[in-house]
Amino acid sequence: MLFAILFTSFLFLLILYVIIRPRPVKVPIKHRHVFITGGSSGIGLAIAKRAAIEGARVSIMARNIEKLEEAKKSISLASGALDVCIFSADARDYDAVQRAVNDAGPIDVLVVNHGVYEHDVLERQGLDVVKNIIEVNLIGSFNVIKAALPLMKKDRKDKGPASIALMVSQAAQVGIYGYTAYSASNFGLRGLAEALQQEVISDNIHVSLIFPPDTETPGYKEAKRTMPELTKTIVGSPVPMKTDDVALKTLQGIKSGNFIVPCNFLGHVLAIATTGLSPQRSFIMAAMEVVFAGICRLIGLAYLWETYRSIEMWHNKQK
C-alpha cells in the first residue's frame, strides 16, 4: 500500500516536471536596463530604488516632470546611482511613449506600473471616468509594451532573458462590488499577459503579473475615502502593504521569471484558485495548484456566500 502511494506520488510529480511550460528561467537585474512606468511615486518609485540598489541602470517614466526630478534625486540618494534617466510622457499618448522608449534605449526589464483607480458602482460612475480608467490602465499598457518590444527583441546587448512585468492588483483575480471599471481593466491586463507570453517566449522575454493587495501609495487614502460603503463592508479594513515590501516581491518574481507573482498569503490562495490556464514555471507551485485547487475553490465559494449575504443584508437595510 505504501509503495503504491509513493509510486503514484512519484509518477504525478514526474508528469508535472515533464509538462511544465515555459521552463524555469532566471532573469538578471544587475548591470541591466530597467524601465519603469509610473516610476515617480508609490510602488514604481520603490521598485526603481531597489533595482538601482541591486545594480541596474534605471529609467522611470511618468507625466509630472517635477515629481520625476524629485524621484530621480530620491533614487540616487538611496542607491548612489548617478545615471538615473527620467522621461515625461502620458501612457495614453503612444507617440510620446515611443519617443521616451527610443530615447531610453533597449530595455531588459520593463515594469508597466502606471495606473489609476476610482471605485464606484457603474450606475453612478461617469462614462468619462470609466474610459479614463480603461485608457490609462489597459490601453496605456498596450502602448508601452508595443513601443518597447522592437528594441527589446532586436537590440538587447546580451540577448539574455528579459522581462515584461505588469503591475495589476488582486482586482485582476476577483471582481469586487464597486470595482467594475477597475477590475475590467485589470482582467484585461491578465488576458494581455497570457497571450503576450506566447508571442514573446521565442525571443527569451518572460512575462510576469504582479498582484499586490492594498498598498500605501499616494492614491490609497483618497480611494479608500471615496469607496462605496458596501464595498468597505465587503473588503473590511485590511492593513495595507508597504511599497518597499511590494517592490521586493516584484523583483523577486521578475528574477525568477514567474508569471503569477502574489505579494501576500491571500494573493497565493487567489493565485491557486484562479490559475486557470496561466503559465506556470515553478514545479512546486504547479504541484500545489493541482493538489489544492479544489480546496481553494471551496474557500472561494464560502467567500462568495459571505459577499452576497452582505450585499443582501445591506440592500434590505436600505429599503
Rank of each mutant, 00 (worst) to 15 (best):
D108W: 12
D83I: 01
I75A: 03
A286E: 14
L251E: 09
F3K: 03
G42K: 06
P106I: 01
N64Q: 02
S183R: 04
L270F: 15
S141D: 09
D103V: 00
M288G: 00
L196D: 06
V116R: 11
T8E: 12
K154V: 09
F7Q: 11
L151H: 09
F12M: 09
D244G: 03
V97Q: 08
A302R: 10
N316Y: 11
G105N: 07
K224E: 15
M167R: 00
F10Y: 15
N186T: 03
V101M: 08
G160Y: 07
V116E: 11
I139W: 14
P24Y: 09
S256C: 12
L6T: 02
F283L: 15
Q252M: 10
G44K: 02
L266F: 12
I205L: 07
V129A: 06
I107Y: 10
P238T: 01
D95I: 01
R63P: 05
A247C: 04
K30Y: 07
V174T: 09
E194K: 11
S208I: 08
R21K: 14
G42S: 06
S169R: 03
D108I: 01
A184S: 15
G294N: 13
R50Q: 15
Q318S: 05
I53R: 10
L77C: 07
W305M: 10
K146Y: 10
I176P: 04
I272V: 15
G178F: 00
E118K: 11
I139L: 15
G38A: 05
L6I: 11
P22V: 01
G126L: 11
A81T: 03
G257W: 06
V290E: 12
V168P: 04
R190V: 08
I86F: 08
I86L: 08
K154D: 15
R21H: 12
I272H: 07
E66M: 07
I145C: 05
R297M: 10
L68D: 07
D155F: 13
K249C: 09
L13P: 11
A271F: 04
A223Y: 04
E229A: 09
H206G: 03
E69N: 14
Q252A: 05
T180E: 13
S278C: 13
E70G: 00
F35S: 02
G188W: 07
I311A: 03
F292Y: 15
I210P: 11
A52C: 06
S141F: 07
E70N: 10
K153R: 15
R309C: 02
T217S: 08
G115Q: 04
Q198P: 00
A247I: 02
D108L: 03
S183F: 07
I75H: 03
M1D: 13
G105M: 09
A46T: 03
I272R: 07
V121L: 14
